[in-house]
């Protein structure tokens, strides 16, 4: 929005912003630098760089967290929930948009209304329902929960996006003898790709970082996600910062790598999701 040339004023702004960014990053410095220190060095010289790279903390944290298992659980839950959410929500949004009967308009309004319900409002009875239906302590169970919790927002995003897809394409396919399911999967769904990327980005960030739902419905240690495993580690080793910091670095790495690798899509996704929302 600004077309002025690069002058002294802008240069000083830029220096100021770089300093601010540095301050923004200091917590990461503290955590990473101290994760390589022994316990006494960590408390004595908190702000200095580590004397040597001590990987022992990481080896211990790896064990205590059961890191490969926690990583696998978080990953599988996120991926399968994404797949389910994308499939059932895009299909529902398609039907609700293309057949706006009275009933479907009501259904759409119901889906949207659920977006304002805080998770804490439904969490207590949700555990009860999960217990009835044998959905507690099971991977498919939590995938089902996430699919239901995320359906509203996903339908909302797809519904908004589909309005811009011209009906003529679908009519042409119908005349060519394509059935309604074929029209959706072969013609419409590929056109939804930009919104599918947005959905996957937004929902993955939410589910990966979510703590309360897995805390409530996954009590078995074998099913712990990264967040839950981290919480039990902190419950047990409260003040052992050497161990805890190494665990934290391991915990933030996967999502940080995901972000840095896909940041363009993530930032676009957030913008698209927010503007539609």
């Amino acid at each position: 929005m600004n077309t002025k040339p690069y002058g002294l004023k802008l240069f000083s702004f830029e220096i100021m912003m770089l300093l601010a960014a540095l301050i923004f990053l200091t917590p990461f410095y503290f955590v990473i630098a101290n994760s390589f220190k022994g316990f006494s060095e960590l408390l004595m010289n908190t702000s200095s760089l580590p004397k040597s790279l001590n990987w022992e903390n990481y080896a211990r944290a790896w064990e205590v967290l059961s890191f490969p298992r926690a990583l696998r659980n978080s990953f599988l839950i996120t991926v399968f929930s994404d797949i389910c959410m994308v499939i059932i929500s895009s299909m529902a949004a398609y039907r609700l948009l293309r057949h706006p009967s009275k009933g479907n308009r009501f259904l759409f309004a119901m889906f949207i209304a659920a977006m304002v319900v805080p998770f804490q409002t439904i969490m207590i009875p949700l555990v009860k329902v999960g217990n009835w239906l044998n959905l507690l302590n099971s991977m498919p169970g939590i995938v089902f929960f996430y699919t239901g919790l995320g359906a509203s927002f996903t339908i909302f995003l797809y519904h908004g996006f589909m309005k811009s897809i011209p009906l003529e394409i679908e009519e042409a396919a119908l005349i060519d003898g394509c059935n309604p399911y074929g029209i959706f999967w072969r013609i419409v769904f590929p056109l939804l790709k930009p919104m599918t990327v947005t959905v996957i980005v937004l929902q993955s960030l939410w589910m990966w970082n979510d703590f309360l739902l897995p805390l409530l419905v996954l009590q078995k240690p074998e099913l712990q996600t990264i967040q839950v495993a981290m919480n039990s580690l902190f419950g047990q080793y409260m003040q052992q910062w050497d161990l805890a910091l190494a665990a934290l670095v391991m915990g933030i790495m996967p999502i940080l790598v995901f972000f840095l690798a896909l940041q363009r899509y993530i930032i676009q996704g957030i913008t698209a999701g927010a503007v539609k929302g």
Binding site: A92, Y94, T121, P125, L133, A151
Partner: peptide, 21 residues
């Protein structure tokens, strides 16, 4: 086929707990 699965998940995970609550 199109609306059923989403409606089912939504009904079990959102509507039922809300009403029970």
């Amino acid at each position: 086929v199109f609306v059923g699965p989403a409606l089912f998940a939504y009904a079990i995970v959102m509507v039922l707990p809300f009403l029970l609550g």
